[in-house]
């Protein structure tokens, strides 16, 4: 029983972080229509930057975190300005391929700057584990879930009530109309990328405080696509619900199915979910069904 609680709680917590990273995807997809396949690499880059700030410069988390956010903002701006803006209006194939190229570039840059390829973040959250109903959970999980929920709430409020958030939603709805209203669409694109990078950075800090930093984070980014697909590409709430589902599936699958199947079965569960969702319910649980015209 304690084992089950353990699996459920860790699964939910990791799922929340997945959902947070998935938000980074949804932000960009909703307002710019670009599918960001470099998500994992961005998470990796921001995690390594945090590592540099905390471990190599010995900053405390309160100083390091603003630095990481600033870094993420700059990265987001640079990517949008120099890689994506020249491609506005190009077919979706180019837009996907350009993020693939970016991801390739970033992963090269990471192994260029941080050749050690594996590291652990310094302790951010208190060390002693908490006991929940017989299960022993390290505090990182609890904090990760809490912070993800907080960021999600802040982002949703921002989207709902802030001027800029409303402008972003309007851009997602109809770019032409928004342009006619005098809203600077390019600035909105750039804002979305900056926000998405910050979200990826927060997700990166949380997930690497749980599992350490390694190239596996790139795969984590790819796995979050299962969250995006299951929740629906353009739905915030969708990814927030799909994240814990994927997290649960992964931790329960790893915990209970491994003895019957091959080892590391948990690693492919998200991909299997992707294939099934795309075959049976391609627009996800909460995605908007697009009607196409010729």
């Amino acid at each position: 029983m304690a084992e089950l609680t353990q699996f459920i709680i860790t699964g939910l917590a990791v799922g929340m972080v997945y959902a947070l990273i998935a938000l980074g995807f949804t932000l960009i997809w909703k307002s710019t229509g670009v599918a960001n396949l470099a998500l994992g690499q961005l998470v990796l880059l921001c995690s390594w930057f945090t590592y540099s700030m905390m471990h190599q410069l010995h900053l405390s988390i309160w100083l390091a975190f603003p630095a990481v956010v600033l870094f993420a903002l700059v990265v987001g701006w640079v990517i949008e300005r120099f890689a994506l803006r020249p491609l506005i209006g190009q077919p979706i194939l180019s837009l996907i391929a350009v993020t693939l190229g970016l991801g390739y570039f970033i992963s090269g840059m990471v192994s260029f700057i941080w050749p050690q390829s594996i590291a652990a973040l310094p302790q951010i959250f208190p060390k002693n584990p908490v006991h929940i109903g017989g299960a022993v959970i390290s505090q990182e999980y609890v904090w990760a879930a809490g912070i993800s929920l907080l960021v999600f709430t802040l982002l949703s409020l921002f989207y709902k009530y802030h001027r800029m958030g409303i402008a972003m939603r309007a851009t997602a709805d109809d770019q032409m109309a928004v342009q006619a209203c005098g809203i600077p669409v390019t600035r909105i694109f750039s804002m979305s990328w900056m926000f998405a990078c910050v979200v990826a950075a927060v997700g990166g800090i949380l997930i690497s405080s749980i599992g350490g930093i390694s190239n596996g984070l790139v795969e984590t980014g790819l796995k979050t696509f299962s969250v995006v697909i299951l929740g629906g590409l353009d739905s915030f709430g969708g990814s927030m619900i799909a994240g814990p589902i994927i997290g649960l599936a992964k931790s329960l699958g790893t915990g209970y199915l491994t003895p019957y199947l091959w080892p590391e079965f948990g690693e492919v569960i998200p991909y299997i979910i992707i294939v099934f969702v795309i075959i049976f319910k391609p627009f996800g649980l909460f995605g908007e069904k697009r009607i196409e015209r010729i």
Binding site: L100, Y104, F105
Partner: peptide, 9 residues
């Protein structure tokens, strides 16, 4: 990877 990523972009 840096070089090839850059070339693709």
């Amino acid at each position: 990877p840096m070089l090839f990523g850059l070339i693709i972009v």
